[in-house]
Design a protein around this nucleic acid. Structure first.
Length: 381
RNA sequence: GUGGGUAUAGCGUAGCUGGUUAACGCGUCAGUUUGUGGCACUGAAGACCGUCGGUUCGAAUCCGACUAUCCACC
């Protein structure tokens, strides 16, 4: 039985829901990234709920290294640990192994690498990743995949895809084995498979067809937004999404800008996640309904208006641009906290408005109005 | 009043045994950020080196006077 319910479509874009043991969330959905079981910038779980966050994302690799998945298992799982009752998706660690671990060796059994924290030698394969995620007891576990760098040769990409498929089967088997064990916190943990294939449409489609046969709970497109031009990412989505099971949620990993999200929805994607709203916020850039703003700019020194005049997030309701700019200049931690609060609220509101547009059959207008505007610099007046 | 020190970008400083485009931090401005090691990274603008004069082929650099400022002493 599928966890996905399709409510409405407009062209290829889909409006739906995903039902889990931790509640139902509405799609299209943006998942808020809390890598180490915390939103960077200092936003706690109860506050996150107030920012319209539906799903929080945590990371297998980081939590395995610190504090250790056994600690979180002992503490009753991630939901109890960070006091978040809604769905949690855990990334498998596949991406981190390839993006930040040193001296990695990829073998059939898995990946040998060194911890970025202390250089300790670590092995992670499909079974290890699933076991860790089972300890974390997230709502949705991601398969352990190889995220091939871009650009990559066709032959390597093809062999990597085949290995990722074999790893996926092992992930599924391990998940089934763990579900029957008595100390498994969430026996109904869901498993999403990840499509790879670099920028080769043929590989992407073949790989998608193979993993679709495994009848997983959902499917993700990985390995995009890793340096390729945006148009290339859209081209791959156009090619591969038609081969993603229509009765399962579709997740575009690590994407992206507000514009990327609107364009992803237009291409049939249901779920997104990205560090951009939080990372940019910490660096002083905010997203608004007029475009992006650099809050450190002197132009805001005596600007009494809220960061975004069309926003009713807790930061915009209470504080001026002048105050936020001052906090950045004074290196106060409240600066990053307020901009993170705003940006997450903005992203969650963006996907909410996308859902409303789909409900009303006005998504095409919404896309035309905002797709380019939101990723541009806001006009100053 | 006497003795001594210091005067270099908006601010704080380096350079001062004389030698082509005067360096650095903060600040300012612009850009970057896409399954988060990093409140980060990349770059740009901005000073005729207190004023006047002297020595020299050549002075931020040596000498003198003046002005400002700081310290100590009376």
């Amino acid at each position: 039985m599928s966890i996905y319910t399709l409510l409405k479509t407009e062209g290829i874009a889909r409006r739906g829901t995903v039902t889990t043991v931790h509640g139902t969330f509405q799609t299209p959905c943006f998942m808020n990234v809390g890598t180490s079981a915390a939103i960077k910038g200092g936003v706690s779980s109860p506050e996150l709920a107030d920012l319209k966050c539906q799903v929080e994302l945590c990371n297998t690799y980081h939590l395995h290294l610190r504090p250790g998945d056994h600690v979180i298992h002992q503490m009753g799982g991630l939901h109890k640990f960070m006091n978040w009752k809604r769905p949690i998706l855990t990334d498998s660690g596949g991406f981190q192994v390839f993006s930040l671990a040193k001296l990695r060796k990829i073998k059939e059994e898995g990946v040998y690498f060194q911890s970025h924290l202390d250089g300790k030698r670590i092995f992670m394969g499909p079974e290890e990743s699933i076991r860790i995620q089972s300890h974390l007891a997230s709502t949705i576990a991601m398969a352990f995949d190889e995220c091939v760098e871009n650009p990559a040769p066709y032959d390597y990409s093809a062999r990597s895809c085949e290995r990722t498929t074999r790893w996926l089967i092992r992930c599924k088997n391990e998940m089934q084995r763990l579900a029957s064990l008595p100390d498994t916190i969430n026996p109904q943990q869901l498993l999403f498979g990840i499509n790879q294939g670099c920028t080769f449409e043929k590989l992407r489609i073949e790989h998608m067809q193979q993993i679709a046969e495994l009848d997983l709970d959902g499917y993700a497109v990985g390995g995009l937004a890793v340096g390729e031009p945006t148009e290339e990412m859209y081209r791959i989505l156009d090619a591969v999404v038609p081969y993603m099971p229509a009765d399962k949620p579709r997740y575009l990993m690590g994407v992206g800008t507000p514009s990327n999200i609107i364009e992803g929805v237009a291409r049939g994607i249901d779920m997104f996640d990205c560090v951009m709203p939080t990372r940019n916020a910490r660096h002083g850039t905010i997203f608004t309904w007029e475009g992006m703003r650099h809050m450190k700019n002197q132009t805001y020194m005596t600007d009494p208006r809220p960061m975004d005049e069309q926003c009713d997030c807790p930061a915009c309701r209470n504080f001026s641009r002048a105050y936020v700019r001052h906090l950045f200049k004074a290196n106060e931690m409240l600066a990053g906290r307020l901009t993170v609060i705003h940006n997450l609220y903005f992203y969650n509101t963006l996907t909410e408005k996308i859902r409303e547009a789909l409900d009303n059959g006005t998504f095409a207008e919404f896309r035309a109005k905002y797709s380019t505007l939101l990723s541009q610099k806001a006009p100053e007046d």
